[in-house]
């Protein structure tokens, strides 16, 4: 790990003043599960590490406008202990439960989950986020891409978003608040995730001088929601494919559906065709299966990950059946 200066500001404005105009000047430390590994591998070599855990206003879960406001520092454990989260946002609770290590749930934060870097093994071994050789050819396309993207992979980025909560937050229509010294802005969970096109871009909308401060969940009344994860291992690994769904129902009929897949693209990946296919229908194994089929119709698997198409299709079907109960 390269050496760095460490700050533990007590207020958000102090913390923001310690950030840099460019990436590489400062990194924000919360739970540390990802950042410390990134620094050990010299993938992040910040001059300053700004530990935000002492900033009270960034913690806590409270009711807000009929929905919930999650402070960026809320841990997975706190999320799962919260009865309102468990009762009204099962899609989010299931995604948090998927982080199966208690040690990570104890320290890992919701803000950190959204800001964690991708797990692409080319990126993690120092080949860059877009993993290209000197001639600009993709190491992923020609290499071992079994865990890489099956959607949104036609450009340079072929990694998958590592965020566990991102797909659930996108399906639920959450908004994310970002603060800098010059003010705050809000983006939707969908807008927060980006597909970088060159080496200067990151995979999230957060700028180097910003801190993710809170997540705003809209009211969940009448919204049936669920997450289904397909995994190789029960624990200690990211899922292979997931789906989070949120259904606005009228009795047994779906009025509108939000379906977002995880770990299949550089961002959480919405499936509008699948959403439309359900409108006005009841959720049955048949309609859920058709929605799963529609969700993966546009998949563009790489040389070694076509198996993920079937996993994503099944994740969508099972998440829909779980949500409909």
């Amino acid at each position: 790990m390269q050496s760095f200066a460490y700050a533990s500001p007590a207020t958000l404005s102090e913390a923001l003043a310690l950030l840099g105009a460019e990436w590489g000047e400062a990194d924000v430390l919360a739970g540390g599960s990802d950042l410390i590994s990134l620094m050990k591998d010299y993938l992040h070599t910040p001059q300053r590490v700004v530990d935000i855990k002492g900033i009270r206003e960034l913690g806590g879960i409270r009711k807000s406008g009929g929905g919930l406001r999650l402070g960026a520092l809320v841990t997975f454990d706190e999320l799962l202990e919260n009865s309102a989260v468990r009762a009204d946002y099962p899609a989010l609770a299931a995604a948090a439960r998927g982080v199966s290590s208690p040690q990570i749930r104890n320290v890992g934060t919701v803000g950190g989950d959204l800001c964690q870097r991708p797990r692409c093994w080319y990126f993690r071994t120092g080949h860059g986020l877009l993993a290209r050789d000197g001639g600009g050819r993709s190491l992923v396309a020609e290499g071992d891409n079994r865990y890489h993207a099956i959607f949104g992979n036609q450009g340079a980025a072929k990694f998958v978003s590592a965020s566990s909560l991102g797909p659930a937050l996108a399906a639920l229509g959450a908004r994310i608040k970002l603060a800098s010294s010059s003010g705050t802005r809000e983006v939707t969970a969908e807008q927060f995730f980006l597909t970088p096109e060159n080496d200067r871009q990151r995979e999230i909308a957060l700028r180097p001088n910003e801190i993710l401060t809170e997540i705003l969940l809209p009211p969940a009344r009448g919204v049936r929601n669920a997450t289904y994860e397909v995994r190789q291992r029960e624990a200690l690994d990211w899922p292979l494919a997931t789906a989070s769904v949120a259904l606005r129902m009228k009795g047994k009929t779906v009025e509108s559906a939000r379906i977002v897949m995880g770990h299949v693209a550089p961002t959480p990946w919405a499936a509008p065709e699948a959403e439309r296919s359900l409108a006005g229908k009841t959720v049955t194994p048949e309609t859920a299966g058709e929605a799963g089929q529609a969700a993966v119709a546009g998949a563009t698997p790489l040389s070694r990950n076509a198996y993920k198409v079937q996993l994503a299709r099944t994740a969508v079907k099972r998440a829909l059946l779980a949500a409909a109960g």
Binding site: G32, S33, I36, D77, P102, N106, V107
Partner: peptide, 10 residues
Amino acid sequence: GKAVYACSML
């Protein structure tokens, strides 16, 4: 009082 990974905390 909470279990943590000592390798991943400063």
